[in-house]
């Protein structure tokens, strides 16, 4: 799935771009220790964890795009880190459940 396809499915807003993002899997979690332990690469992370540390964890496990639910605001330091680390960020008005359902064609990310 491309980033544009993902955005279309969740009524998303692009916050940080990654034009060559390859998204084949997804994981839904708000607990970063859980993301670190279970999320795999080439994935979309569906979360409300709008924090700088999310970028660091996503870099470790190979997340391509972070989907921030409920249109939570993305702090400037998180944006800057995402640009530096080349992780896309998309916000959506959907809940974590609704976003997961909308992206159900992706395979569950596993590690």
């Amino acid at each position: 799935m491309t980033l544009n396809e993902l955005i279309a499915k969740i009524n998303g807003t692009l916050v940080v771009d990654k034009p060559d993002a390859t998204i084949s899997a997804a994981y839904t979690s708000d607990l970063l220790s859980d993301v670190m332990g279970h999320c795999g690469d080439e994935s979309a992370l569906i979360t409300i964890q709008n924090h700088l540390n999310t970028i660091a964890v996503c870099t470790l496990v190979g997340v391509e795009v972070i989907v921030i639910c409920h249109d939570r605001p993305v702090p400037d330091d998180m944006k800057a880190a995402a640009e530096r680390e080349e992780v896309a960020i998309v916000t959506t008005p959907l809940s974590q459940f609704a976003a997961s359902v909308a992206l159900a064609e992706l395979t569950p990310a596993a590690r």
Partner: peptide
């Protein structure tokens, strides 16, 4: 703590 090592470039 997790057994994973710190990545200085990230953290």
């Amino acid at each position: 703590l997790p057994r994973r090592k710190n990545d200085p470039e990230t953290f």
